[in-house]
């Protein structure tokens, strides 16, 4: 990016997040991650690397899991964005994956957890849950430094089995 790019003229963007439209005036370089966190106050989506290597910022865009740090906010206009804050029911009931993470103690420090859960929901939807090995493979884009992996696999397996039943 040339350092001469003038950011004085903000970019007008409307982001549809968790079924609500949010008109924003942003520096054109703003990532979706920073737009969510710094401009919309949706801090459930975490920043872990800003380089697409850790998965902490995983959100759903049009139903698919994506890394919010690698998407420019401008490029997310007109798309359907869902974050961890939009995962529970309107009445606040936990999504089954959130409940499974609590039940299996699939978190410790909790920082990677929103990204893990968003990824896990998509992993089940994608059908990548036929074996534990497949779950491990398809959950490997989300790093957990606390090492809660065995319990994360148990939570994902549990929800996949509930869904199949």
């Amino acid at each position: 990016m040339p350092d001469t790019l003038p950011p004085e003229t903000p970019l007008l963007v409307t982001l549809r997040v968790n079924e609500h439209d949010h008109p924003l005036a942003l520096d054109p370089r703003t990532t979706l991650l920073d737009a969510l966190r710094e401009h919309l106050g949706l801090t459930g989506t975490k920043v872990g690397c800003n380089h697409g290597t850790c998965g902490a910022c995983t959100v759903h865009i049009d139903g698919r899991r994506q890394l919010a740090c690698l998407v420019l906010a401008a490029a997310a206009q007109g798309r359907d964005i869902r974050t961890i804050e939009g995962l529970s029911d309107a009445d606040g009931a936990l999504h089954p994956m959130q409940a499974a993470f609590v039940a299996h103690d699939a978190l410790q420090c909790g920082y990677c957890t929103p990204g893990q859960i968003m990824s896990a929901v998509a992993c089940v939807t994608e059908g990548h849950t036929r074996t534990d090995a497949e779950i491990r493979e398809y959950m490997s884009g989300n790093l957990c430094r606390c090492g809660a992996y065995p319990n994360i696999v148990a939570a994902v397996r549990d929800v996949a089995q509930q869904k199949a039943a």
């Binding site: 801090t43 459930g44 961890i84 804050e85 609590v102 909790g110 929103p114």
Partner: peptide
């Protein structure tokens, strides 16, 4: 007993240092 802070962490409500506005 389940982790007391598990719900806050699983819903994204737990506030870490960079989350305070």
């Amino acid at each position: 007993i389940p982790r007391r802070d598990a719900m806050a962490k699983a819903t994204g409500a737990a506030q870490y240092a960079a989350d305070f506005g």
